[in-house]
């Protein structure tokens, strides 16, 4: 239990930013699906002020905005799954939503929460990484509301740790509209079809031409302190024709690039094996696409 001294529920982004500016001692509540079990389990101490951001209109919605899709931080997993825009332009996110916890959790959990929780195994993070997503951070440092953007790949610094300053609020995510021949797939390995924490997850994206991926993006989950882009694997993959030898080589680079740990879900050795075997399997699919 925590001694919460103040509960606030701002109705605008500006108000929220003001609270954050005034005191660093604020815990932000969105869907609560990570916050509640973490605080109940004693892994997270709720700070003096609990700020419910559910009533801030600027954090909601999924829309096209200047050549990009902007997903508000409060968009729930269910909303993303049901969004026609996402289905049309970013189907890889639907794949990730489809493996995300349970219906009940999807109804409450928000994309912003999944990003700020910064779990190495966060289901939405790997597909967002291969989509080159940017985070949009709002704050009110000197009387005026300002926003800055940061590539998601630079946002995570450790398990549960991000570059969001205590005075900043994650307002949303921006993803450039994919061009022609864009290919993006996600694979989550868990021990059961749903309601599971990923043992590993893999995202692969790029522009697919003549059996080769250019502007290749590869990201891995649950194999490093943060959900990681894999530049060496991307390089090995970049614009190469995906024959059997290339696929084997790329899978080998992937295995060497990840740095997993042993935990209750799997050993580091097995995670590396899975990264190799499933990268290979996914690239086989790309080659056949």
């Amino acid at each position: 239990m925590t001694e919460i001294e103040q509960y606030v529920a701002p109705s605008s982004l500006e108000q929220a930013a003001e609270y954050l500016q005034r005191s660093g001692e604020v815990t932000i509540l969105a869907g609560g699906t990570d916050l509640m079990p973490q605080s109940q389990g004693g892994r997270l101490k709720i700070k003096r002020t609990l700020m419910n951001i559910q009533h801030i209109p600027e954090l909601k919605g999924i829309a096209i905005d200047g050549g990009a899709i902007r997903i508000g931080a409060l968009a729930t997993i269910t909303e993303i799954m049901q969004s026609e825009l996402i289905k049309k332009h970013l189907p890889i996110l639907i794949e990730a939503c489809d493996h995300f916890a349970s219906d009940q959790i999807r109804n409450a959990a928000t994309l912003g929460g999944n990003v700020c929780n910064a779990s190495p195994a966060g289901d939405m993070l790997v597909p967002l990484l291969v989509l080159d997503a940017e985070v949009e951070l709002a704050s009110k440092p000197d009387g005026g509301l300002t926003r800055r953007r940061l590539p998601l790949s630079e946002f995570f610094v450790g398990p549960g740790k991000t570059r969001r300053a205590p005075s900043e609020l994650l307002a949303g995510l921006r993803i450039g509209l994919p061009g022609a021949h864009h290919y993006a797939r996600f694979f989550k390995f868990g021990t059961r079809p749903a309601l599971d924490i990923a043992t590993i997850s893999i995202g692969i994206a790029g522009t697919l031409n003549n059996g080769a991926l250019s502007s290749a993006r590869v990201a891995f989950g649950a194999v490093a302190p943060v959900p990681m882009r894999a530049p060496r694997t991307e390089q090995a993959l970049e614009a190469r024709r995906l024959d059997a030898a290339t696929i084997e080589a790329v899978a080998g680079v992937a295995r060497d690039e990840v740095t997993p740990i042993d935990d209750v879900r799997a050993s580091a050795w097995y995670r590396k094996e899975l990264i190799h075997n499933i990268t290979k399997r996914m690239l086989d699919h790309v080659a056949q696409a």
């Binding site: 749903a194 309601l195 209750v264 879900r265």
Partner: peptide
């Protein structure tokens, strides 16, 4: 005990 919860103690779920 490392997994005293239904998150990490895996009961069979319906689709399995």
């Amino acid at each position: 005990m490392r997994n005293p919860s239904f998150r990490d103690y895996k009961l069979v779920t319906a689709p399995e």
